[in-house]
Amino acid sequence: MDKQKADTRGRRRHLGGDRVTLQDVAREAGVAPITVSRALKHPERVSSKLRERIDRAVSLLGYVPNLIAGGLASAETRMIPVVVPSLSILTFIEVIHGIQQTLEQSGYQVLLGSTDFDIDREAALVETVLGYSPPGIIMTGLRHHERTVNRLKRLGRPVVEIMELGASAIDMNVGVDNHAVGACMARHLLAQGYERIAFLGAGMHRDYRAMQRFEGHRRVLEGAGAECDLLFRRDEPSSYDMGRRLLLEALKARPDLQALHFANDNLAAGALLEANRQGIQVPKDIAIGGYLGLSLGEHLSPRLTTVSVPLFKMGVEAAKLLLAKLDGQPLPTAQVDIGYELMVREST
């Protein structure tokens, strides 16, 4: 087919004519249809020169793969569902980025779903996405509705749970020990000489991982003989404004507080900015620590002390485990502890 004919076919399809098929692309590229299929599904399995030729044909003809038909024919799609509690929290955005970048390199796409920290909503969402017969699925956390756990165990396909570690993983697990993270910041604040230390969080009735960090914090203070149950929490979602409000609430209730351990960097940043507005000197009047290691913390004044977790790497490792299992590769481990690092800066 010469370029003029191809352009004519492309224009006709743009105006609503017949659909470009895989066979059309194969004919334009001068290869067999099965070669085109292989290049589109597994680009890493064909030579770069051949892939470029097929990509040119796809672009020239305006070919769009029929994913539904392909899924029905092969009993699966190339879409990997990734289920997270929220799409507006930076924590999950960085993890998703790592997952997406890694999966796309192997010809897969991410299908995102958000549960708003609701396990019933998560259960309904999982039932829906599994109806498309995905090759595998990535879930957030280790706590799910019983029917979700049973459904995923019967799936017979790779399941990766992220954000925390535990023995109850359905299949594979990549995350961090949240109790250890909470304990890490508490030990640091104690080592700095602070004795009256409060933990502050938002939405903790749904975000049980924040509660795990509080438990790690509380145990360290209890072991040191310090007041250990100072907890200020609000049911509303985490935000800079919520951090501001929690700071004022805590200092009004306990003016003798020496340090504040926030459940995340967003809250800690809001508190630090409000302290500056109020003329409260950090850390002289009150020390402030956070969790996550967001780049924002380095640009505050004073810079924020935090426990940093490699979120992007967590996403990459989760995707790697899933891909390895899909390819039938032996796994050295089914659980990856992503680790954390205490970043000591001027706020403590």
Results as ranks from 00 to 15, higher is better:
Ile54Glu: 08
Glu215Val: 11
Gly225Ile: 01
Ala26Gly: 04
Leu323Phe: 03
Ser114Ile: 00
Leu267Met: 12
Gln212His: 13
Arg45Met: 01
Arg38Pro: 01
Leu221Gly: 05
Arg345Val: 10
Ile162Ala: 01
Ser114Val: 12
His144Trp: 06
Glu236His: 13
Ala259Asp: 06
Gly201Leu: 05
Asp229Ala: 05
Gly70Arg: 06
Phe262Ile: 13
Met204Ala: 13
Glu215Gln: 10
Glu298Cys: 06
Gly290Pro: 12
Ile162Cys: 03
Leu125Lys: 10
Leu292Lys: 14
Gly182Phe: 04
Arg27Val: 13
Ala287Trp: 12
Tyr132Met: 12
Gly141His: 08
Gln4Val: 15
Ala319Pro: 02
Arg209Leu: 08
Val160Phe: 01
Val309Ile: 14
Asn178Ile: 02
Val344Pro: 01
Ile54Thr: 07
Met139Asp: 08
Ala210Cys: 06
Ile68Glu: 06
His144Ser: 07
Ala183Val: 02
Pro81Ile: 03
Gly328Ile: 08
Glu104Ile: 07
Thr333Lys: 14
Glu215Arg: 06
Pro135Met: 00
Ile68Pro: 06
Asn173Lys: 05
Ser47Ala: 05
Leu331Ala: 11
Val95Tyr: 04
Thr115Asp: 00
Arg218Cys: 08
Leu165His: 01
Met185Trp: 02
Glu341Ser: 13
His14Ser: 10
Arg19Gln: 01
Leu190Cys: 10
Lys313Ile: 00
Leu311Ala: 08
Asp7Ala: 13
Leu311Pro: 02
Gly16Ile: 10
Glu44Ile: 01
Lys320Arg: 14
Ala202Val: 11
Gly30Val: 02
Val174Cys: 08
Leu248Tyr: 12
Arg19Trp: 03
Val307Thr: 12
Glu298Leu: 15
Ile280Pro: 12
Ser86Pro: 14
Tyr340Lys: 09
Leu152Gln: 09
Val181Phe: 07
Arg56Val: 11
Ser308Thr: 15
